[in-house]
Nucleic acid binder design. Sequence first.
DNA 1: CTAGGTGCTAGACCGTGGTCTAGGTCAACG
DNA 2: CGTTGACCTAGACCACGGTCTAGCACCTAG
Lengths: 126, 126
Amino acid sequence: MSIGEVARRTGLSVHALRLYEREGLLAGEVRRDEKGRRLYSEWDVEWLTNCVKFRSSGMPLATISRLAQLVREGTGNEAERLELLRGHQLHIEEQLAKLHACLDLINNKVAAYQRHLAVGASGDPW
Amino acid sequence: MSIGEVARRTGLSVHALRLYEREGLLAGEVRRDEKGRRLYSEWDVEWLTNCVKFRSSGMPLATISRLAQLVREGTGNEAERLELLRGHQLHIEEQLAKLHACLDLINNKVAAYQRHLAVGASGDPW
DNA sequence: CTAGGTGCTAGACCGTGGTCTAGGTCAACG
DNA sequence: CGTTGACCTAGACCACGGTCTAGCACCTAG
């Protein structure tokens, strides 16, 4: 599968795909054809799809790279992979808490402004 | 209240506080004492606390700045404030969805690795 | 008197995560 | 044959959100 195809399927740009490769995010070597063009496997696309999820939940490239490295190294380091994943689990839970806190704030403000606009209330909700 | 005190209370650095002011994030003018030092009100701290929440939920400085501007301009633009807030509401909901998607992935992987480690199963979960 | 702590401004610097460009190779189309 | 389009590398460039420095002023304590 060509880089363009993978870009379409993952939503990443070809630039980003090359960057990710340079940064070592890919578990599994990227093969090349005779002309030096990258060839991706179905499995690479799955992995990259996971990378996209990690990224969109705030995992830094360096961390994904570390995970990829562990996977590349093969069995024997499962404990470390687990630790890394659990670290990110915590991180996500913190983010969820912050998002909920902000959502509460906004919901209140939105409700206040809606009342304000509907009733023509006086006094600035803010 | 001095900038140092506000830094302590909001968790922002004094550098960040000055940056925020330059970027127009503060609704309400920051007064200065005779010697030119910033004086913050209790209300500024509340506002900044909200800014911190907005930031930690991914609202860009530019957007907070816009909101602050609307608030500074006084009543009459409530509809636009509401629109801005609802935009961010949507944004937060998207983030929540992404976080949950990643959390699902991680939970599965964590469970897989725990089984793997406990049972000494063969085959790499990844 | 002096040292330490706090504050000021202006502006340099930084990490992160990309994006874009230059300059080149190749294959297919018309 | 020329052009178009996909790909390659190396490296420049960018936005964002800060952080830090230089150089200065002031106050307080020792």
